[in-house]
Design a protein around this nucleic acid. Structure first.
Length: 163
DNA sequence: AGTTCGGACCGTT
DNA sequence: AACGGTCCGAACT
């Protein structure tokens, strides 16, 4: 497992890689993060890092990444992975409510649990947890800050309701 | 139209 | 046993 910084116009994201792929992505924070120098990364990791960087840039621009590194979602429970998979099927420019996501994975009653699972998403932006809104088009929550949620949605052409 | 409240729902710690 | 990135209906303002 290693971590590396990805510079973007929106700040420095931190990507975490396991042996099987991209395992985590952190929003920019002020803190300095321990990282492995890019030149020391294995060929595999630096290749994934490039793919992640490209994908992230595109996603931040509101586009759908044309290619992704392999994702390592093994940290999640079965239920969570099911939710995350459902999230990946929401195209840019579209949104779903927590209830709709719950239905799409055949657990109509697990609305709140879906919310939890979204919050546990290890790879935000790339796995578009921001495209899930509360009922009635209201913004709902976002663990890493509603500003991000608004910003991402706006770039995708989705006009978020004021509140 | 907007708000507040209460209960029901389900996976996770 | 308690907590959520929820939802819905009821009862208010």
């Amino acid at each position: 497992m290693t971590s590396a910084l990805i510079q973007t116009a929106d700040g420095a994201f931190t990507a975490h890689f396991s042996d099987s792929g991209l395992a985590g992505l952190d929003f920019p924070t002020g803190e300095t993060v321990s990282r492995t120098a890019t030149k020391e990364l294995s060929a595999q990791w630096s290749s994934w890092l490039r793919l992640t960087g490209r994908a992230l840039e595109q996603a931040l621009a509101g586009k759908t990444p044309d290619r992704l590194p392999p994702l390592d979602l093994s940290s999640g429970t079965v239920f969570q992975r099911r939710v995350w998979n459902a999230l990946r099927k929401i195209p840019s420019g579209q949104t779903k409510s927590y209830a709709q996501v719950a239905q799409s994975i055949d657990r109509p009653g697990a609305v709140r649990a879906v919310g939890q699972a979204c919050g546990a998403n290890p790879i935000p932006v790339v796995i578009p947890c921001h495209r899930v809104l509360a009922a009635g088009g209201k913004l709902g929550g976002f663990s890493s800050g509603l500003d991000w949620k608004r910003k991402l949605l706006t770039r995708e052409g989705t006009i978020p309701e004021p509140d």
